[in-house]
Simulated assay, not measured.
Amino acid sequence: MTFKRLALTFGVAAIFPAAAQAAEIVLKVAHFLTPTTPAHTRFIVPWCEKIAAESQGRLSCQIYPANQLGGTPSQLLNQVRDGVADIAWTLPGYTPGRFPLTEVFELPFFSTTYEATSRALWDFTEQHAKREFAGLVPIATWTAGPYALHFRDRQVLSLDDIKGLKVRAPSRLGNKLLSALGATPVGMPAPQMAEGLSKGVIDGALLPWEAVPPTKTHELTKFHAEASGQYALSTATTIFVMNKAKYDSLPADLRRVIDNNRGRDVSGLAGAELDAAGKLAHDQVVARGNTVYAIPAAEVERWRAASSGVAEEWIKEVSAKGVDGRALHAAAAAFVRQHSN
């Protein structure tokens, strides 16, 4: 049974407050998105319902969307590590330098589909990057959908067209990709994009489809470019993690409930749910009358060549930290291929 179906089956603690009152342990779950976003409605809420059901009401969640615990999106990681939140969903890219190894999945033309890359990210994390999660218990690691480029008032078909445009990027490697393509990257969390687009601070945004309707990007842009081919122009890693001290404090049977709802399959399921949301968002944008198009394959090869140095730079940076960057790059790519077949 998918998390989405569980959402319909059990309902949430906010709807059934008696269940929350009866719980022995209420987990504070924080993220920076609004309650209408797919990550909230299609994964976080159903996940909370599932652990409540499997613990027979002894576990429940109190969800704090939109940074209701205070702070900014970039502070969520510290909040869960410090115990302000028990569980958090966030983007590692908002805290540059703290997840240098798993960042490999954000390289240009590296990821494929939501579900395949999410499973690959979990396997890579378990085998090569556990140290990046010190003080945390990973529940799920997934990638956003293949990023598309969304532009206010012009159709971008080539490297010449994108040159000099101010484009929102979600992460350090997103910045590097856009710079390699000739654009001017503007680092900006998703909640700030609407204002940036409406005021013309940015000409466009690098964003996955599932995030378009919640951020009203389709209302503020007219042209939406996708890269042809199997590999995505870019993506962002996302993590759903629990404070380790909180996890360790749970009775053994409740830790098993958490363990039964974390891992590769849960990560893949999160990716699948976001994939479904991305397809709906894509159709919504088309129905609105916006121009959605694919950058031709021959031109995509030019973009791939122009951005190839980003991967080499990442390999050098990671190797300078005392690990074999090229071997890690190869291992991550192998996981992507394995789960994409």
Rank of each mutant, 00 (worst) to 15 (best):
F3T: 03
F3Y: 15
R5L: 12
L6A: 13
T9F: 13
A18G: 14
A22S: 14
A23H: 09
I25Y: 15
K28R: 15
P38W: 07
A39N: 05
I44C: 04
V45M: 12
A52G: 10
A53Y: 15
E54T: 07
A66C: 03
N67G: 10
G70C: 07
G70W: 12
S74Y: 10
R81Y: 09
G83N: 11
V84M: 09
D86N: 14
A88D: 12
W89C: 02
Y94L: 14
T102Q: 11
V104G: 00
F105M: 01
A116Y: 00
S118G: 09
A120L: 02
L121T: 01
F124Q: 03
E126A: 15
Q127M: 10
R131A: 14
E132L: 08
A140D: 04
L149S: 04
F151A: 04
V156S: 13
R168L: 13
L173N: 08
L177H: 09
A183S: 14
P185T: 03
M188I: 09
P191L: 06
G200K: 06
A205I: 11
L206G: 03
A211V: 01
T215L: 14
T217Y: 06
L220G: 06
T221R: 08
K222R: 15
Q230G: 00
T235S: 12
A236E: 08
I239Y: 09
V241K: 08
D248H: 10
D253V: 08
L254G: 06
I258M: 14
I258G: 06
N260Y: 07
N261I: 06
N261E: 10
R264A: 01
A277D: 05
G278I: 03
G278P: 04
K279N: 10
L280D: 11
D283Y: 04
D283I: 00
G289Y: 10
I295D: 02
A297E: 15
V300E: 07
E301V: 02
S307F: 05
S307V: 04
E312S: 11
V323T: 14
L328E: 04
H329C: 05
A332K: 00
V336N: 03
R337N: 09
S340N: 10
S340A: 15
N341S: 11
